[in-house]
């Protein structure tokens, strides 16, 4: 006897067609971009034969080199700072019972996700320019601070998810077995939390690497990152050099996202 089948969206008419069109719309432009990074010609949309020329050009361009180094310095510092802050915030919001003002604290932590980025950018521009005048400091510190701030919620979410799946009795059991609070954190909480922390840090790193709006507003002269350098190129004639840089960034994010999914899947 045939059992009534459960509802399955994949059996609806047109499902396959819509899925294929969606994937095409999402990925065809990216595939085109990657293909044209190997163009021997000077155009981003006229094919002139296969070549690695633009990768050499990009790698040899001092402005690109400087921007890449700056991007990595900022992303590394921002992900370290944001992950540290996010770990403390996650511990404070999950390793205890419900308390008054809990939802307000969630809103404050996740604020960078809600507030339009351009508003944060303008606010930081105004705030940092007065700090610059007062202190005279014009280094990368402002960008690192700004990136750290908007990376916190991205680092916070996987760490919080990991903590919520963790038996609340873990630290209690450690304390029962003569572990001081610091030892309990060091030997029990931290190793169990590590996959969440690594995932959070990788997410924060990618988010920082990709940022344009806040960076564009906060950076001082000569502080271009890879995304703002590429934005600047738009004002001149666009060459496949931009495609080459984009392709490298894309490959990097795919590698990091793959690592992210491996780390988050291996639970317990």
């Amino acid at each position: 006897m045939a059992r009534p089948r459960a509802f399955d969206v994949t059996t609806l008419p047109g499902f396959t067609f819509i899925a294929i069109v969606s994937f095409l719309l999402l990925y065809a432009p990216i595939v085109t971009l990657v293909i044209y990074s190997f163009n021997a010609g000077d155009s981003v949309n006229l094919w002139g034969g296969f070549s690695l020329k633009w990768y050499h050009v990009a790698a040899g361009n001092e402005a690109v080199q400087g921007a890449a180094i700056r991007s990595f310095i900022i992303a590394t510092w921002a992900s370290v700072i944001a992950t540290t802050v996010a770990t403390m915030a996650a511990l404070g919001t999950t390793r205890r019972g419900k308390y008054r003002g809990q939802s307000l604290i969630y809103i404050i932590i996740n604020q960078p996700l809600m507030v339009p980025e351009i508003v944060t950018a303008v606010a930081l521009l105004i705030f940092f320019s007065s700090v610059k005048i007062a202190t005279g400091y014009t280094g990368l510190g402002y960008l690192i601070l700004a990136h750290s701030a908007f990376c916190v919620p991205f680092a916070y979410l996987p760490i919080k998810a990991r903590l919520e799946g963790m038996d609340i009795n873990m630290e209690t059991a450690a304390a029962d077995l003569y572990a001081t609070p610091w030892k309990a954190f060091r030997h029990v909480t931290l190793p169990l939390l590590a996959p969440g922390i690594i995932a959070g840090a990788m997410l924060a790193f990618i988010i920082s690497l990709d940022d344009v709006i806040i960076t564009e507003f906060v950076k001082s002269a000569g502080q271009d990152t890879l995304p703002t350098y590429m934005l600047g190129q738009l004002r001149r004639a666009l060459t496949p050099e931009v495609n080459a840089i984009s392709t490298v960034l894309l490959a990097l994010s795919i590698v990091i996202l793959a690592l992210f999914s491996v780390v988050t899947r291996k639970r317990g």
């Binding site: 873990m170 059991a173 304390a175 029962d176 077995l177």
Partner: peptide
């Protein structure tokens, strides 16, 4: 006295073994 300073140990209902 904090639990870490009491010569008393507990078997938890959920066992609370350290999974790592």
């Amino acid at each position: 006295t904090p639990p870490s300073a009491r010569p008393v140990n507990t078997v938890f209902q959920s066992y609370a073994l350290f999974p790592h």
